[in-house]
């Protein structure tokens, strides 16, 4: 059995198995650390930086940091929450996030984080970039206006031979996550649904599935993101 270590998050005493990623260790102790590019079950990437915490005085991403004994972690502080808000606001102005017209609204994690942090307006100017909608695949639509480059789909959606169906294309500010046109044609309905669920925003959409859930019954209509973790009892 792995060694059990002690650590604190915002002064709360916690215990976890040594080597567990901090996000998971915190979750097991009933503490929610906001994440966006992280998805349970796939290899962490640490690209969005929303799960940034201060560990023993240094800022680090908690999705990629294994827990060790005696860590002193600050997460829910004014300074760190403002950094998180700044990232969310940047993501909102960097793409074209028209929530009222989005199929994923109410189930979107980016939007849910904005709700949780009570973001009324981004502090940065909107850029309104010109992006395309790729509707060439018969099963799914790739809406580039909403893509936040979290790479969740690249990491999670693979065929039987382990090949990623999604990939990066172009470079710098022109980068986009695209669906492989050949592999994409062999995509099963189940994998298409999984891709839509893995996407934190409304960038991957299964055809004919938009707006099927009525307002009021969607994932983040009634409860803030992370509240299920905060309500849960710590697991040992």
């Amino acid at each position: 059995m792995a060694k059990i270590v002690n650590f604190t998050i915002d002064g709360k005493d916690c215990i976890a198995e040594e080597g567990l990623y901090l996000v998971q260790a915190a979750k097991n102790n009933g503490v929610y650390i906001p994440t966006l590019c992280n998805y349970e079950g796939i290899k962490p990437k640490g690209s969005c930086r929303i799960c940034t915490v201060r560990i023993n005085g240094r800022l680090m991403t908690s999705c990629t940091t294994p827990i060790s004994d005696g860590m002193k972690i600050e997460s829910n502080t004014e300074e760190i929450n403002d950094l998180r808000k700044a990232i969310i606001e940047l993501l909102f102005v960097e793409g074209n996030h028209f929530c009222p017209a989005c199929e994923k609204s109410g189930n979107c994690e980016l939007q849910a984080l904005a709700y949780r942090f009570k973001i009324m307006v981004p502090r940065y100017p909107y850029t309104f970039p010109q992006r395309r909608v790729d509707a060439s695949n018969p099963k799914i639509i790739k809406e580039q206006n909403r893509c936040i480059m979290c790479k969740r789909c690249i990491r999670a959606i693979k065929d039987e031979q382990g090949r990623s169906l999604f990939a990066y294309k172009k470079r710098g500010h022109k980068s986009e996550v695209v669906l492989d046109p050949v592999l994409g044609l062999q995509m099963s309905d189940e994998l298409a649904r999984k891709a839509m669920a893995v996407c934190p925003v409304g960038s991957i959409l299964v055809r004919e599935q938009g707006f099927i859930q009525p307002i009021g019954t969607r994932k983040f209509d009634k409860k803030p993101i992370g509240s299920e973790i905060e309500m849960s009892q710590p697991t040992k």
Binding site: F92, N96, F98, C99, P100, A101, M120, Y126, F128
Partner: peptide, 18 residues
């Protein structure tokens, strides 16, 4: 006071931006 998404971020009319 900006009331609603259109006042805040352009809203649906801003689909033409770009």
């Amino acid at each position: 006071v900006s009331v609603g998404e259109c006042a805040i971020m352009g809203g649906l009319p801003a689909f033409r931006n770009g």
